[in-house]
Amino acid sequence: MSQKMTLGQTAEIAGPKKAFIIPKPEVVASMIKRAKRPLLVVGSESAKTMTSDGVLVDTAIRLIGKMTVAATGHLVSEFLKRDVQGVHSISLMNLGDRLRDPLWGGFDGEGQYDLVVFAGFPYYLEWLVLNGLKSFAMDLRTISLTRSYQPNASWSLGSMKVDEWKEVLDKIASTLMEEN
């Protein structure tokens, strides 16, 4: 057997520039806190990915805090079912395309975001969009909260077991909630 790999999927091999591994959950919370215009992007897998709150949509709701929230695919319906208003519905392709445009005004017209947090996507799709941003939105910082390492983000969780990941997410959410 070869040396232990840290990639999420064996065929989705990273390029030379790889994400820093987030050392502990508090670091994510503090990066979000320090950001001027943070955006949380929640993907279609969130409706079926289990977390300690139920599914990832429920945890995402706890994460929101001061972040603007975008739901991709048709996920906005899950937020509406939970009576959470103010979540912006946008497709992942449209969002990626806008995030690489420094002149995009964001959902509120106030300007581009400086930190984007991704959670709940098919692994390869997130990999690709993050790689588009890595090369074509070089000023944007990205964080991946996926359970498998996402090499193309600026910061990513390392690959971890389900229970460990649930704990990490829970910790990020509770730290953010305490601080708000």
Partner: peptide
């Protein structure tokens, strides 16, 4: 329709 590139390989 401007291309939005998502490199599949960086090299």
């Amino acid at each position: 329709y401007k291309p939005f590139y998502m490199p599949f390989c960086d090299l």
